[in-house]
């Protein structure tokens, strides 16, 4: 058998030069390798490991916000104080990924670049206004996630582009975010549906800004439209009911093994209302432990 190249990149430059000659990056391998073993697509013959690149695994704060390296693992995301305080929805999502083993090796960059419509960090990144930093030997560019994800498992990045970081814009004091997903069990699960919300309140507790995005109800993660009517209102039962209705109506779910389309359309509304509720409460200063799913229950079934 011919031996195939497997390189271990020590720096971003190493990785980019390997990718320029056709190597596929592998970070935690929890999508790439597991997918290959399941027969989804064969393991690429030319691989470059990017998990040891130190520059990819930092979380840094600057004037514009926080830059999260693409190699940061879910285990770090769910516990890092910058993320849990300011970008809690992302921590909620990271804390739900797989199992401790999956979270210890699986990365944000891998999740983003894998582009699954069921990815858990996707909806949080959209509501938090994140931008994705891509780099190749040809240069760097910054894209919005909605421009990056083009379909199930496909992105607009070219094969030689490495995701180096995710940029999270600065958040106001009175903002909160949350991610909630429907799951049938509490580990090793994949989102049946999920929703992230970001809410910013004014001093009177009235909504100034709200963003909601949905997981696993369309070919890519989708941001909800038509939320402007909610601005200027308090987060009460009426607002939450409206959120659920908007989410259910904008979802275009499919029926598959995990759930029927009707059930998905209904439950994504439930997830959206719970996400907005938790985000608003966090915005108002309440502490809800990460992840919301465990603090509040796989749908409220987990109350202590």
């Amino acid at each position: 058998m011919p031996t195939e190249p497997f390189q271990i990149a020590g720096s971003i430059e190493d990785a980019l030069s390997a990718m320029a000659t056709g190597a596929r990056p592998v970070a935690g391998g929890t999508d790439l390798v597991v997918g290959a073993r399941q027969g989804k697509s064969p393991l690429p013959s030319n691989l470059v490991a990017v998990d040891r690149i130190v520059e990819l695994s930092t979380i840094e704060q600057n004037a514009e916000g926080v830059i999260v390296g693409a190699g940061v693992t879910h285990a770090t995301l769910m516990t890092d104080p910058l993320i849990t305080s300011g970008y809690t929805a992302l921590a909620d999502a990271a804390a739900l990924v797989g199992s401790p083993a999956t979270r210890n090796v699986g990365t944000l960059g891998g999740n983003v670049m894998n582009g699954s419509p069921a990815m858990d960090t996707g909806a949080p990144l959209i509501v938090l206004g994140a931008m994705i930093d891509l780099r190749s030997q040809g240069g760097s560019r910054r894209v919005a996630p909605s421009k990056l994800w083009t379909g199930p498992g496909s992105t607009s990045a070219s094969d030689d582009e490495l995701c180096v970081a995710v940029a999270l814009p600065k958040r106001s004091e009175r903002s909160g975010s949350a991610y909630v997903r429907l799951e049938y069990r509490r580990a090793m699960e994949i989102a049946v549906v999920g929703a992230a919300a970001s809410v910013e309140l004014n001093d009177e507790g009235v909504i100034e800004q709200v963003a909601i995005a949905l997981t696993a109800v369309a070919p890519t993660i989708v941001a909800l439209e038509g939320l402007t009517d909610l601005v200027g209102r308090r987060v009460d039962e009426d607002v939450l009911a409206a959120v659920a209705a908007i989410a259910s109506s904008q979802a275009q779910p499919i029926s598959d093994l995990r759930a029927g389309a009707d059930y998905r359309a209904h439950t994504v509304g439930v997830m959206a209302r719970r996400a907005v509720d938790a985000a608003a409460r966090r915005a108002a200063g309440e502490t809800i432990e990460v992840p919301v799913n465990r603090a509040e229950g796989v749908g409220r079934t987990d109350r202590p």
Partner: peptide, 11 residues
């Protein structure tokens, strides 16, 4: 058993 009536998820 605890039931989330909004989703049917039981625990």
């Amino acid at each position: 058993v605890r039931l989330d009536r909004d989703t049917g998820v039981a625990r």
